[in-house]
Design a protein around this nucleic acid. Structure first.
Lengths: 341, 341
DNA sequence: CTGAAAGCGCTTACAG
DNA sequence: CTGAAAGCGCTTACAG
């Protein structure tokens, strides 16, 4: 490969018969340099397509202007919207973004953290892998450089965390169902007590309590790995009950869609017999019939917010770790699966 | 922020009372170093969590082990599967990946190329933005470092290109429809002559010709920006024809889903009255009812292949630009929208 | 207003 | 088997 070298300061200096220092300063608009010199330097730089070797720059200044991002799965639509926000905001603030997948694997996650460190990223943005045990590695990284968690977080890690108002979002979803006249509302959640699942369940419980509805363990279902298939399965279980629910709240859209598919099979009218509400406003929610009522999570905003806090911590270092949680508001999108106009 | 410095070779050397050179060589398993010394060095390195500053390393060796990836839109499912392949294969070969979105914007794309260059990436993987005019910038980059295009490519750019067998895939899709007894097959394609749209259209034409079916301009529809909405719109046009088609091939899944939604409105039986075939095997294709027959594009394989060729060009530099096209095979996934068992 | 020199953390040809 | 020294491309305190 005919790898032409990039132009360097040295070459510019030689060509202009100036010192490297002067050229460097001229390009950085240093006050000490005269206008005419700046002109000359900049013109040649443009002509030769000079662009600074950011690697050398970063190496010198201990700042790479690279951010590391670790997410469990890059193919989840919600994740891509967060990444969009991170890329957009990050780039507009002069940072490049290295993205990596943990595949929900603890081990992989630690490895990624390690290489990110080695690559000298200025800070790390991360959504935790599902079963994160070795908090140690994360804590170590957090003590060395700015770290911001988003979406999948943990209060065991002292750092800035950007999440949605999970509890309130679930509360609003349930309240909407109650307002449409539903009184026996089932929930499909995760077995494992992830931050997200726990909060959504809390919202569910609070809504029932505040509206004086009974809480029935029979219609509180849990699954290890929540998915479309599991949604179908658990819907079948709910349909086999003597006292069927009149609404089903699934804490993910994929499970909710599984529920709808199961209800279709039994010719159950949605939402009249049983209403369905999901969570995420995934792209499927308008493809499925009836269209799915669901909680819209503003992914891009989460991304932009997370990166904004991270860069702030990078550029204005504080002495102590900031433990704070930023909540992003969600909206319930009412569609045909819960309310037909 | 309590930014503890990373351990450096210097510190290790001091602690062990060795020179920096020796420590460096010991860690790299250089043959000149004695076993006991290697042991001592490695043990201390482990204890102090030493990890080499890859920035310094890369800076010295002119190799960053970072790859740049530019895609039009990170939220497309197909794109994320390619990225998955790139990340997985790239990481397994010791490379980190910087991802950026061009948003189908020519200008943005050039900027991204420029910053990638500045960050000293070792090579670039790219799917072209829709309306790429300024080939110049791309050619300049291509002459400076390994460049591999995938999915959205152009034969005006001399480099390795990884694509799917677009023409053959479309041919197979149409032949499948013909085999199920369809004789009047409409196509929905892009107005603009993108590589992908053009190839798929060629496959469509060849299939009709080889099966001695007439080609009717009335059922060859084009749209500027192919989308679900446009699929609906164009399906309506097809339904208003005196001689309706008995099958519709849309060159994207989203348009195909729009078609299905439109057919639903008119209570048209799918596939009996009109069959529908899409292209991509997007995640929607099993959510929609009836499930969509479509061409599966193996995204991860495309990603892995592209990154493999790129890294090969990085590690085994050739003197001249390689112009070659690698075709990845696709599979037609037959579902209910074209054939009910 | 401009330049010579040190140094960021590492590797490696050269010397011993 | 080990070390001193140069150098990757840049910035910046120090000198003039």
């Amino acid at each position: 490969m005919n790898k032409k070298q990039n132009t360097t300061l040295k070459e510019l200096a030689k060509e202009l018969d100036l010192s490297i220092s002067t050229v460097s300063r001229a390009l950085n608009d240093h006050q000490d340099i005269s206008e005419p010199t700046k002109e000359r330097v900049k013109n040649l730089a443009k002509k030769l397509h000079y662009s600074p070797n950011l690697f050398a720059k970063g190496f010198r200044s201990h700042r790479t202007h690279i951010l590391g991002v670790i997410v469990p799965n890059i193919s989840h639509y919600f994740t891509t919207t967060i990444l969009k926000g991170i890329l957009e905001k990050g780039e507009s603030l002069g940072y490049r973004v290295i993205i990596s997948e943990s595949k929900n694997d603890d081990q992989k996650q630690s490895e990624m953290l390690q290489t990110m460190l080695q690559f000298g990223v200025d800070g790390i943005l991360m959504a935790l892998a599902r079963k994160t045990r070795s908090i140690d590695d994360i804590l170590r990284v957090g003590s060395r450089m700015p770290l911001v968690l988003f979406d999948k977080v943990s209060n065991k890690i002292p750092c800035t965390q950007v999440v949605i108002n999970e509890e309130e979002a679930a509360y609003n979803a349930i309240e909407h169902l109650i307002n449409t006249g539903k009184t026996r509302i089932a929930i499909i959640k995760e077995t494992e007590q992830s931050f997200n699942s726990r909060k959504r369940f809390e919202g569910y419980l609070r809504a029932l309590k505040e509206h004086n509805l009974p809480i029935d363990e029979k219609i509180i279902l849990s699954t290890e790995d929540i998915s479309l298939e599991k949604g179908k399965m658990l819907a079948n279980i709910l349909l086999s009950l003597k006292k069927r629910p009149d609404a089903i709240f699934a804490i993910t859209d994929s499970a909710a869609i599984g529920v709808i598919k199961a209800l279709h099979k039994f010719k159950i009218s949605i939402p009249n017999d049983i209403a369905v509400v999901g969570f995420s406003n995934s792209i499927h929610s308008t493809i499925i019939n009836p269209s799915l009522t669901t909680v819209d999570q503003p992914g891009e905003k989460i991304g932009r917010t997370a990166v904004k806090y991270l860069i702030d911590e990078i550029e204005n270092p504080k002495d102590d770790l900031l433990t704070r949680t930023i909540e992003i508001k969600t909206n319930l999108i009412v569609r045909d699966s819960s309310f037909k106009a």
